[in-house]
Design a protein around this nucleic acid. Structure first.
Length: 152
DNA sequence: GCCAACGTTGGC
DNA sequence: GCCAACGTTGGC
């Protein structure tokens, strides 16, 4: 089992949007960064991840589960889509996505500020200055520590 | 609103 | 292959 973190701008897609989604499942489409894509391709069904809001109040707000392994991101093929990539073809999709399912919200959402003062989390990718990776791995120890803090 | 850090593009 | 210029992300 591996652990991950999914970053999203709530104005674009929020925890509440996930709550309201059919089956409380969403495809994590539109990722156009190779590192993030590679992490998604490394995910397995059943892996757990944190759901992180960037923006005004940056915080981990919930827990999700990878419920479908990586598959081609069809939004790259759609010229009308804002994440359209003219290089992508059905044969060579370039970009992939996974599906995630809501598990539960954190009992106590953890702001970035709260996380950043924990010595246990020093070195976490999320907290690294300038880090922009929107899909990233979380070490098992960090995952357990955060779960304990958050009551999840 | 500012700006540091980052990834990508494109000229050479 | 290098690197400057650019656009974007995201915390503050």
């Amino acid at each position: 089992m591996n652990y991950w973190l999914f970053k999203t701008e709530p104005g674009c897609f929020s925890w509440q949007d996930l709550e309201n989604a059919p089956g409380q499942i969403t495809s994590w489409d539109g990722v156009r960064n190779y590192q993030a894509r590679n992490f998604m391709c490394a995910m397995h069904k059943g892996d757990l991840g944190f759901f992180y809001h960037s923006g005004k109040t940056p915080a981990i707000v919930g827990l999700v589960e990878v419920c479908r392994q990586a598959y081609p991101d069809h939004t790259a093929l759609d010229p009308e889509n804002q994440h359209f990539d003219p290089r992508a073809t059905p044969e060579k999709p370039i970009w992939h996505m996974v599906d995630v399912r809501l598990v539960r919200p954190l009992e106590r959402p953890l702001t970035r500020r709260a996380l950043s003062v924990c010595p246990e989390l020093a070195g976490m990718e999320l907290l690294r200055r300038g880090s922009r990776l929107s899909v990233q791995p979380v070490e098992a120890a960090a995952f357990a520590f955060i779960c304990a803090l958050a009551g999840c």
